[in-house]
Design a protein around this nucleic acid. Sequence first.
DNA 1: TAAGATAATGACTGACAGTCACTAAATTAG
DNA 2: CTAATTTAGTGACTGTCAGTCATTATCTTA
Lengths: 235, 235
Amino acid sequence: MGIQERKEREKEARREEILDAAYKVFVAKGLAGATVDDIAAAAELSKGTIYLYFRSKEDLYLAVTNRGLDIMLGIFEATAAQGGDPIRQIWNLSDAYNSFYEEHREYFRMLAFFENPEMHDTVSEEMLAECQTHDAKVWGFVSGVMKNAIDAGYLHAGLNPLEVGMMLWSNSTGLLRQLDRNEEYWHARMGIDLRKTLRMSNSFLLEAMMTDKAMQLYHDQLIHHWPTRSQEKKS
Amino acid sequence: MGIQERKEREKEARREEILDAAYKVFVAKGLAGATVDDIAAAAELSKGTIYLYFRSKEDLYLAVTNRGLDIMLGIFEATAAQGGDPIRQIWNLSDAYNSFYEEHREYFRMLAFFENPEMHDTVSEEMLAECQTHDAKVWGFVSGVMKNAIDAGYLHAGLNPLEVGMMLWSNSTGLLRQLDRNEEYWHARMGIDLRKTLRMSNSFLLEAMMTDKAMQLYHDQLIHHWPTRSQEKKS
DNA sequence: TAAGATAATGACTGACAGTCACTAAATTAG
DNA sequence: CTAATTTAGTGACTGTCAGTCATTATCTTA
């Protein structure tokens, strides 16, 4: 009696189709600019059907961003699978976040958009809860990577894994948003390569938290070998 | 013949009244939730009058955020007027940004909200240009502070003032947004004091860019005197 | 094949952004 | 002081769109 199961699958498939269509429309027109009729047309469904699957336009938008979180976590996990010592893992995680930004810019933007507290009132409890589940998975992963580095004695013992994750994450996010907002302006007009800036600031943060054990391991790759200080170090 | 002038003043005053009313309504209901009729009622005007002063609800919202930028710049300038050496000035600037967050949380949120690229298409060219003017003033101020520190030999010479400003700014912004989004969660549930985290990460960044000259000046106040490393330093 | 359950539809409603013909008030000219 | 003219303000009206729901279509089961 696989009819129930087939129906479940079909329902799920339809839900995914709607999400595909919604993603395209939201990317093209933004949350405010997109109409549910647009999305229905893109999914080759009627408007009413959309509301059988999602409670509101905002819920649908949030469901799309949850996909973004899944993609992000997938990239993180694939990166971690490459192995490497705990510090390397942190670097790789940072790179993975950059990759997400580069290759899934639209999701990055949607996630940034929905982070705004103003948006949270506009979605259903259920969808918000699902979002938090996805969020928690990502944060669980990130803090796991940090914890490894602390436990292995590569980052200072007093640090809280989540705190370390938060620092690096927020720093990257802040700069990537600036980059997204106006890369052209900063690069061409101001002569600043924000990608370089980002690598630099991540290094500063990470190196400040690294133990001597880790510093020795990465001695040659340390970023802040300032001209005057590198001489000191050799002594 | 001061009639022209008086009319100008009255017009400006009315504009400010509308902005006062709009601020209250936007704070209470958000951009999407607020209606122009709400704002008109709060300003004791008719809807049509609002449109004599602003082109759209979004333009009005952006005009309110521009006030936020003015307030921010005012706080920055007041802080700078207290004096201090170049590094102290940077610390004070960072504190001033925190003060802005604490005391003008609503403006902080509105600014964060409008930073989203999706919003930029919804406002008039004129208003966006005005916003950029305000933005440029703030950035001019910030990079000026950084430039002083570099020129005085307190930050490494190869650094670009804007780049330094960008690093500290983005880092603070990223963490303050997390704080705003869910301080309760991080503090009570995860046991992390993000304000402390913010001070720490700002220290890490700043100290990584400081010259020996500056490091000596601030030796006793350096944050990252990790247990194991502080002994080294004494040698 | 009929009855019943499930999925999909699109016409309809209410709310709201933005407009514009009109009214009110202030200014200027005679 | 009054009429003419300019400027400021109004609110009824329009088009659009989110969300609903009575109806229709399709699929399942007896």
